[in-house]
Design a protein around this nucleic acid. Structure first.
Length: 286
DNA sequence: GCGCAGGGGGTCG
DNA sequence: CGACCCCCTGCG
């Protein structure tokens, strides 16, 4: 395990707080010195902003600069995407101004899949705790600054974990879903590597939907927040339902149909719907 | 302070 | 369309 350091000059549209609190990830913790520490694949990473630069330290098996560019989506021109979205209307301008530092992370597909199954009908503090326990129990330890961190367990590392074991970790009724999906991945009923190569978003979505615990909302989150990176999907949860209705539909809240919102999002935001969703979600929730 | 509803980034049957 | 596990929050 190699120690590395990398100084990153502040990229456009890049704020750690926005990135880590907009709801796409669950494993980054803020330290008392204002830096953030997280686990990305088999690397522990600490990022500290110092004026216009970021001091990044890591322990792990990947080249830190490459990892940072790939993980934080730094090769994509968010300034251009924001300009494009801003032209749509005032709502977009306002929400982008609020969340202008958001970058959509390229997170490991397997980890994103499991994390968002856990997120169903759950709250963020509890989701974070469950993922932490899961990693501490079945992941690999990595030492960083005398402290222990744990990788997210691979499918193989969960192969002998029973439904009851998951229940004991505090997963609640999601225990069975986690078990079944893990087994399906291990048996290659769904091949995640093949999924990464498939350019057809609808096909990928349909395949994800066959997995236990994966419904429309979870499938779209996986498509948007993992390495699949499909900007055209539009995950609909209670918050986005609310904000879209308030801004565009003005119907009685309990009568708004998801299909209508989906259609509206696609018409308005096109192939940038997912990014628009993040700005709207982050703005409305805070 | 303690105790108890209320509800949470949905999915499944 | 109701149930679902756990737990954190807010109120009395």
């Amino acid at each position: 395990m190699e120690k590395q350091q990398y100084i990153l000059e502040k990229p456009d549209c890049f704020e750690l707080k926005d990135i880590f609190t907009c709801g796409q990830c669950f494993r980054w913790e803020e330290n008392t010195d204002g830096s953030y520490t997280g686990i990305v694949r088999k690397n522990v990473i600490n990022i500290k902003q110092e004026g216009n630069t970021y001091n990044i330290k890591s322990v792990g098996n990947e080249d830190i600069k490459e990892l940072i560019y790939q993980y934080f989506d730094l090769n994509r021109d968010y300034l251009k995407l924001q300009e494009e979205l801003s032209k749509i209307d005032e709502n977009m301008k306002t929400s982008i101004e609020y969340g202008k530092g958001i970058r959509l992370l390229n997170q490991d597909l397997w980890e994103t899949l499991i994390s968002f199954i856990i997120s169903a009908n759950n709250n963020i503090p509890r989701i974070q705790k469950i993922i932490k326990r899961l990693s501490q129990t079945y992941g690999n330890e990595i030492k960083f600054d005398e402290k222990s961190y744990y990788t997210f367990p691979l499918p193989e590392q969960l192969s002998n974990v029973s439904i009851q074991d998951f229940r004991n970790l505090g997963l609640g009724f999601r225990d069975k879903r986690l078990y079944e999906t893990t087994q399906a991945i291990l048996k290659k009923q769904v091949d995640l590597e093949e999924l990464e190569k498939n350019p057809n978003t609808q096909e990928v979505r349909e395949t994800l939907l066959t997995l236990s615990g994966v419904g429309p909302k979870v499938a779209d989150c996986i498509l948007l927040f993992s390495t699949l990176k499909r900007f055209e999907v539009f995950p609909i949860d209670v918050w986005i339902n609310r904000v879209m209705n308030e801004l565009y539909l003005h119907e009685q809240e309990d009568k708004v149909s998801k299909a209508k919102i989906q259609r509206l999002a696609s018409e308005k935001f096109g192939d940038l719907a997912g990014l628009a969703q993040q700005y709207l979600f982050f703005w409305r929730r805070n």
